[in-house]
Design a binder for these strands. Structure first.
Lengths: 229, 229
DNA sequence: ACCTGAACACCGTTCAAGT
DNA sequence: ACCTGAACACCGTTCAAGT
């Protein structure tokens, strides 16, 4: 008697939230944000599509959980350095590298507002800021500035990764395209952007990111005006 | 003779890219990112679903075009102020307000990398930075820091707007939830985040955003170390 | 040249039915 | 308690056929 299609192997052990999240991370790393579907996930887990919903509420929760697992891993890696500044620099770089290696984390973070991954980052960033001597009333603004800068870069990295995947361009191809487009801009309407075309081609993302962190650190160290005293 | 359903009125004038983009903006404003579908759009334009593809390549291009129209509008609004600092502040605030009023712009911008909306912002931000006396070799880093901070805040705003829409929470409800969750954090593992709970409830997004801009401006003004002389 | 609208190949999510 | 997998209500995009 002929069967319509090969019966899929079903797993014998129980599914768990952690197993699902781990599989989701594999899928996201392998095929990007669009690659994470409940169908692909259930196939990889040798289970039915609906089974996942017993352990996780919906796709958004799954994405946040995957993001949190990765962020937690990244942050525990970041030991305390010699100075608060160095701690912040090291932490920021670890986050940059994590988002660079897993672009989907960049956009997942943006959606995970008051939730765990954000809280973890806030906490890790907050301690060295406190140690820097930033007064309590300025801590929220300060951590916010650093966090938003980091998330901004992360979002751009995520977009880069997504673009590279869908267009099949590698990094230097992409930069070449942007640089060429910018050199072609109207010199009257866009003098500044036009002048940037050369720098776009040769810049180092990681170095620029760190330079931005240093700029913000200088801003934190600089005395606030209108204090009179 | 009974018809299956009311035959839709079809438009008599020609469709154009601008008409489509304008309708897309209306739809995005009215029902958020998820509200923009080719079916909803074609209904609003009294045309067939496939007709839009004659004028616009795909959804991504449509989103970028909508974003660009709004950004162009926002930037021409931003006149030059008394000082470069004030010009940057005014520009940043205009962008903040635009993203606040149209949250979808926040996430659309992240995806519009080397394209027009980004170039426009870069250009508007770049001139006052040049006027500030930032040397050519630091201009890319400087404009990048400001841009990424602004985009980071924009991304967060976009997420806020999306959340408010889907959960049906208003701003203060949402902040209340976050604040409550943070007060409940483990005081040993998360002392800093816990201490922020109170500030979360009462803070002013717009003011904090501007404080971050000021912090970065101080960083730009601060002398760079390791110059020796 | 421009538009129609059915069709295709997908989605996330639900839920009766099974064990 | 946990899982199955068909079914539902959608998507973006394509394309033969019309004008």
């Amino acid at each position: 008697m002929a069967r319509k299609s090969a019966a899929p192997q079903r797993r014998t052990d129980q599914l768990s939230r952690d197993t699902i999240v781990a599989a989701a991370i594999d899928l996201l790393d392998a095929s990007g944000e669009d690659g994470l579907t409940f169908r692909a996930l259930s196939e990889r887990l040798s289970t039915g599509a609906g089974a996942i919903y017993w352990h996780i509420a919906n796709k958004n929760e799954l994405l946040t959980a995957a993001c949190d697992a990765l962020i937690a891993r990244t942050l525990t890696m970041s030991a305390t350095a010699a100075t608060p500044e160095d701690t912040i620099r090291a932490l920021a770089l670890n986050l940059f590298d994590a988002i660079d290696a897993h672009p989907w984390v960049g956009s997942a973070l943006a959606r995970a507002l008051g939730q765990m991954p954000m809280v973890r980052i806030l906490e890790s960033l907050g301690r060295p800021i406190r140690d820097l001597g930033v007064p309590a009333r300025d801590q929220w603004t300060t951590v916010g500035a650093l966090l938003n800068y980091i998330l901004g870069v992360g979002g751009r990295n995520a977009a880069n990764g997504q673009l590279a995947r869908t267009q099949g361009l590698d990094r230097s191809d992409f930069l070449e395209t942007v640089s060429a487009a910018w050199s072609g801009l109207d010199p009257v309407a866009f003098p500044f952007a036009r002048g940037l075309a050369a720098q776009v081609r040769t810049h180092d993302d990681r170095e620029d990111f760190l330079a931005g962190i240093d700029l913000i650190l200088r801003g934190i160290a600089a005395p606030r005006p209108r204090r009179r005293g």
